[in-house]
Nucleic acid binder design. Sequence first.
DNA 1: TGTACATCAGTGAACGCGCGTTCACTGATGTAC
DNA 2: TGTACATCAGTGAACGCGCGTTCACTGATGTAC
Lengths: 196, 196
Amino acid sequence: MAGVQKAKSEETHRRILEAAVALMEEGGLNAVQIRAVAAKAGYSVGSVYKHYADIDALIIAVNAITLSQIRDAMTAATEGLTDPVARLKALAHTYLDFARANVNLWRGLFDHHLAGAREIPEEHRQENIALLAFIGQEIKTLEPAMDDAALAARTRTCFAAVHGLVTISLEDRFIGLSEDTLPVEMDFLVDRLAGR
Amino acid sequence: MAGVQKAKSEETHRRILEAAVALMEEGGLNAVQIRAVAAKAGYSVGSVYKHYADIDALIIAVNAITLSQIRDAMTAATEGLTDPVARLKALAHTYLDFARANVNLWRGLFDHHLAGAREIPEEHRQENIALLAFIGQEIKTLEPAMDDAALAARTRTCFAAVHGLVTISLEDRFIGLSEDTLPVEMDFLVDRLAGR
DNA sequence: TGTACATCAGTGAACGCGCGTTCACTGATGTAC
DNA sequence: TGTACATCAGTGAACGCGCGTTCACTGATGTAC
């Protein structure tokens, strides 16, 4: 009956990660605490440490899931669209909708800062690049003559502008744009960025 | 010799605030701690509480100074300029330059979240509105036919887009735009937002 | 198949640190008469 | 001007809480012979 330990271990690993995701969703980054995760997953504190080196590793794992969810949503949203501007709009709205539907998961991506010299894991970096690649692809279609450096810069600018609109709309301290005007403003922004 | 106590008290108040600003500048939001502020200002922990109700009140005071610094820089930067787009570019570059020159003070504005139900002080809110008013004024010149609600929405969108570019450029996790391309991208963004 | 030992998953009390906050106290300044 | 008392600025040890992390331990699973 070999493999029982492995199966148990994998289930525990999965349950702990699920609990962490749920806590991030419910209470934001600060709610992802070792004791809370352990309790929610149905294990003890020590077990969490058998699967994740520390709290940062766990949060990074949660953020990796969030990034891949966004990537998947973007893939689905652009499927079948051919016009570059329509595709860019679909990407922007997907990003906005995801952020609004999953405020805490989305904030977790940007609120989590590693202390000191620790590096962002390569996997995470790749996911970020993947999101930018969605945008870069469309901009290349719109501006075929642009060289690679300019394209990379322009891609980040466009992402940054859309990201800014999403950020500000989620901050209550800036009395937010109303529910209805937000998509209108997003379309305006993408149109202008695309030169239309 | 009346007024000695008042003068001492005012000086202490000022020194504590100065120490808090210096700490925020040097080490970011998390460096603004009661003990650190007290030590830097040359007083004891208890004295800080004689002048500020709690750590949040002190941080809010620091942020108020930062906001007014930005506002003053914007006023100076637009002086003498008449073209609305030139003025918008000057505002955007002032914002970018301030953030790059005072990363920690600038981050403090957005990283500080009040726990629970506490409200953002009215003074703070007014300063935010003041910054938006700078932009709104120029957009009104560019789009005189726009009604107030649309103008308010558009103003926030433009601020948000510029804010996003500044935010992303300060994040090292997105390999930043190089020193040189950043102003170019900022000009591009403002031109496009202005419809040029 | 059975025995002895090694390895693993899981436990949870205890440690340690950071840090905001309190409060009884001291000495200086202000005020009333 | 002098005395007695009140008020204020400033002190810093101590409290309390949150929370990440450790580690000696238990029982189950795996392995060697």
